[in-house]
Write a protein that binds this DNA or RNA. Structure first.
Length: 590
RNA sequence: GGCCCAGUAGUUCAGUUGGUUAGAACGCCAGCCUGUCACGCUGGAGGUCGACGGUUCGAGCCCGUUCUGGGUCGCCA
């Protein structure tokens, strides 16, 4: 008896002619050219091979097989009479002698055509993901993902990092995203939580004496989805280094990422190390975003001063930001659509005017600008043909709206973005504190466990009102690529004294630190190394590398926007007995 | 939770000012075709126009409600 197969569907070449072979796979298509001549396409993971049918008996057998059934074909390899140069196996075909149906497809109509599944409705694709994944275009993203993960792992090991797994069932953490909770059967009323990130564990590993840790870590957050954010679960290349500072972390990622982006990316141009560094404040001021897409050549300018008192009501008492596009030739309809799109995304209305070819102010709010024409022209560096988009509001709102304006103009006005490249940058010097919008009180801006720039000294100064706490920055950083936030990281605050002081500034104290992060606080009291780390999102990296706009395209079995797995039917109801064991009362239904 | 967009054949879509029997492409079925490779040609089957209600002599189209999906804001230390 022959083995289950002798060759894959991407293996046979002209040199195999005359050989007895057995191939297996899915019957993708049958092209009947006459009553006794047909071509059958067999597809497996590796590729496709053509089987030629030349007898009426064989034709009868093949005609009874539904497409997408799995079959095995034993036969002889033969040189094709008419070759197909587009196929690796295009020089040969298999003349079948023995045919076996291995798994019959019971339906002659599928929910979608396999080779066009990407055009199908996403709900249908997700429900029949196992069919969707048969499409080589869909499957290739998953293969790419394997390659990227393997390369990341290899590179991290090469850089001396140890891969250490951390618990999936752990304790709920009091801050951050909503947790996924798991009821504890043996502890009525108590719950485990799935980790939002292995943050505390990796810091405890540093305190334990491990020097360089990494993990391709599953993270769970019960937050709503976005096109670039999978609901429920995602993966991070989580890493942490002991006796390390910001520079050490940057050096590792600047060494690890570019070669992988160059090798696996859809585009082969990636920024070289060292990546550009932009302070949070500069990013907001110049790009109107803390995740600027540096492929766009437009920037945001301040127009508050030059437009103050121009008489346009929305500008009165507000910050005004401008995005100038030279040689602008788009029609009015384009501008209206752009403004509508910006308003939707920024939830704030943008304004505009133009300088026409003769240098005359036209359109939009030009009549309010007219009086200050010379000053505005000089301040913004305007030339005939310029379009000026404007955003106003409180400082951060104006920046944000201008950022959306910049991005949309950059993407839709030809010539302002080079999409075929990867542009990395670090966003650094995030503020440590902010005034909470609801409370009006001083609050932590981001991670309360980042090391403040200036250490204990600057915190004590702030306490004595000798320094403005709002100007204190943290050793916290984001890695951004093509406008996508790949990662957040920080130099951690490993000193209990500084930690308590940082909490005291927002009206909390030692007891709060202890209560919220007991293990970490206790551990740091036993001599902790200074440490720093970061956790680039694996899914987002693969999405960038694959050139996909939706994160679901690079996840093998994605959930939909509402965090449902349509294929498995999750989440699902469970038996009342299961709930009783877990001390949970069934939900009363209306 | 707010806002925007979409929902018509198995799939992707078109459907004019509200007007006879709702169309196309692909797929499916049948027939023809001896070198196809997105095979070709001929014919056929296939529709609760997401659901409910309203306006109207008449609704796929207008109005209201609702459901589903996608995008986005909030949220994501």
């Amino acid at each position: 008896m022959m083995q289950s197969r002798t060759h894959t569907c991407n293996e046979l070449r002209i040199g195999d002619a005359g050989r007895k072979v057995k191939i297996v796979g899915w019957m993708e298509n049958i092209r009947e050219v006459s009553a006794s001549l047909a071509f059958v396409v067999v597809r497996d993971f590796y590729g496709i091979t053509q089987v030629v049918v030349e007898t009426e008996e064989m034709m009868k057998v093949f005609r009874d097989i539904t497409r997408e059934s799995t079959i095995s074909v034993e036969g002889t390899v033969r040189e094709r009479a008419s070759k197909n140069p587009k196929l690796p196996t295009g020089d040969i075909e298999v003349v079948p002698e023995k045919l076996e149906v291995l798994g019959r497809c019971r339906y002659n109509e599928l929910p979608f055509q396999i080779n066009r599944s990407r055009e199908a409705d996403e709900t249908t694709r997700l429900k029949y993901r196992y069919l969707d994944l048969r499409n080589p275009e869909v499957k290739n993203n998953i293969i790419l993902r394997c390659g990227v993960v393997a390369a990341l792992r290899a590179s991290m090991l090469e850089h001396g990092f140890l891969e250490i797994t951390t618990p999936i069932l752990t304790a709920s953490s009091p801050e951050g995203a909503r947790d996924y909770l798991v009821p504890a059967r043996n502890h009525p009323g108590k719950f485990y939580a799935l980790p939002q990130a292995p943050q505390q564990f990796k810091q405890l590993l540093m305190t334990s004496g491990f020097d360089r840790y990494f993990q391709i870590a599953p993270c769970f957050r019960d937050e709503d989805a976005r096109a670039d954010r999978s609901p429920g679960e995602f993966y991070q290349l989580d890493m942490e280094m002991a006796f390390a500072n910001q520079e050490d972390v940057f050096a590792v990622l600047e060494d690890v990422l570019p070669p992988i982006f160059a090798k696996y990316g859809k585009y082969n141009i990636a920024s070289a190390a060292p990546f550009r560094r932009i302070s949070f404040n500069d990013a907001m001021e110049t790009y109107g975003s803390d995740k600027p897409d540096l492929r766009i050549d437009l920037t945001v300018q301040d127009a508050t001063k030059v437009l103050s008192g121009c008489g346009f009501e929305p500008f009165a008492g507000n910050t005004v930001k401008a995005v100038v596009v030279p040689d602008f030739t788009q029609p009015r309809k384009f501008i209206d659509q752009l403004c509508a799109d910006v308003e939707v995304q920024a939830s704030s209305k943008p304004y505009w005017f133009r300088l026409d070819e003769n240098g005359e102010l036209v359109g939009g709010i030009s009549k309010f600008v007219a009086e200050k024409k010379d000053a505005v022209t000089a301040a913004l560096g305007l030339k005939p043909g310029c379009f000026v988009g404007l955003a106003s509001g409180k400082r951060s709102a104006a920046q944000k709206t201008a950022g959306v304006l910049r991005k949309m103009l950059g993407v839709s006005v030809p010539g302002h973005i080079d999409t075929e490249r990867y542009e990395f940058c670090w966003i650094v010097d995030f503020p440590m504190y902010e005034i909470g919008e609801e409370s009006g009180e001083l609050e932590f801006c981001h991670n309360p466990f980042s090391m403040p720039n200036g250490g204990l000294e600057i915190l004590e100064k702030a306490e004595r009102h000798e320094a403005d706490p709002l100007t204190i920055t943290a050793y916290q950083y984001d890695l951004v690529c093509n406008g996508v936030e790949l990662s957040s990281g920080a130099v951690r605050n490993h000193d209990p004294e500084i930690m308590i002081k940082a909490f005291e500034l927002v009206g909390l104290g030692e007891n709060d630190v202890k209560a919220k992060f007991p293990a970490m606080y206790n551990a740091f009291c036993y001599g902790a190394p200074p440490h720093a780390g970061i956790a680039p999102g694996v899914d987002r990296m693969v999405m960038l590398l694959a050139g996909e706009d939706s994160i679901r395209e690079i996840i093998p079995f994605p959930m939909n926007k509402n965090a449902q797995d349509l294929m498995m039917g999750a989440p699902s109801e469970v038996e009342p007995q299961q709930l009783r064991e877990l001390h949970i009362a069934p939900v009363e239904k209306d």
